[in-house]
């Protein structure tokens, strides 16, 4: 494992900790898209089917379980926790995420490494992850004002993607047969979605001002 991959995993983990912190500390999930969170649950469950078939390392297994567990906990809080669910901005979270699920699944049936149950679900999870942030980004755009923790959550998620791209570049040059074009192309698309957000995040950081997105 190279340093970029590790940095990517850590920023991914930090983003989840930031989100859990926001929900637990403020007892509020305002500004957070339940649809994006539900998509992440599907992404992790579909991708980590290999928990039952392949063992890579303790690190991999633990991280997979953490990602599945934390994403389930977040969705549970937003749907079931009495205080938290009252703060959910339902009217701002109207993205039709079922289309993303359907579209990703159809794409996985067409484009995959092997036509097996596990490989189809792996490709599906890669495609779905690429677009899963969209409901969240649309929601931020609609609300305009972004609170600090929500802004940091999205920032760390974007950083995770950026580090994974550096990781692939590194692997491409250091490993003789590294070719994972499905993951790399989807990863590029996914990271591109964050470009706009990053732009406004850095401007607000530079000016030491609250993050505001244009309507």
């Amino acid at each position: 494992m190279n340093i970029f991959r590790f940095a990517g995993d850590m920023t991914h983990l930090i983003s989840i900790v930031v989100l859990l912190l926001k929900i637990y500390a403020t007892k509020s999930c305002s500004g957070i898209s339940l649809k994006t969170q539900e998509l992440y649950v599907i992404v992790f469950l579909a991708r980590y089917l290999d928990l039952f078939t392949d063992f890579i390392s303790v690190y991999n297994t633990v991280m997979k379980l953490v990602f599945i567990g934390s994403s389930l906990a977040i969705v549970w809080c937003m749907r079931m926790h009495r205080a938290v669910k009252r703060t959910y901005d339902k009217e701002l979270d109207t993205f039709r995420h079922y289309f993303l699920v359907l579209g990703s699944f159809v794409l996985a049936l067409l484009l995959h490494e092997k036509f097996t149950f596990q490989e189809i679900f792996w490709a599906f999870s890669i495609y779905l992850e690429a677009v899963a942030i969209l409901p969240q980004l649309v929601m931020l755009q609609r609300s305009g004002n972004v609170d600090n923790l929500t802004g940091q959550y999205v920032f760390f998620l974007g950083a995770y993607r950026a580090f994974y791209i550096l990781n692939w570049i590194y692997r491409f040059f250091t490993e003789p047969h590294f070719s994972r074009w499905i993951a790399c192309l989807s990863g590029l698309v996914q990271t591109a979605f964050y470009a706009d957000f990053f732009y406004y995040y850095f401007i607000s950081w530079k000016n030491n001002a609250k993050l505001q997105l244009p309507a």
């Binding site: 995993d9 392949d54 890579i56 997979k64 490494e113 490993e175 047969h177 994972r180």
Partner: peptide, 10 residues
């Protein structure tokens, strides 16, 4: 070639 197919990323 076999080991290249291991999906070792998260």
């Amino acid at each position: 070639k076999e080991e290249d197919d291991v999906k070792d990323e998260l």
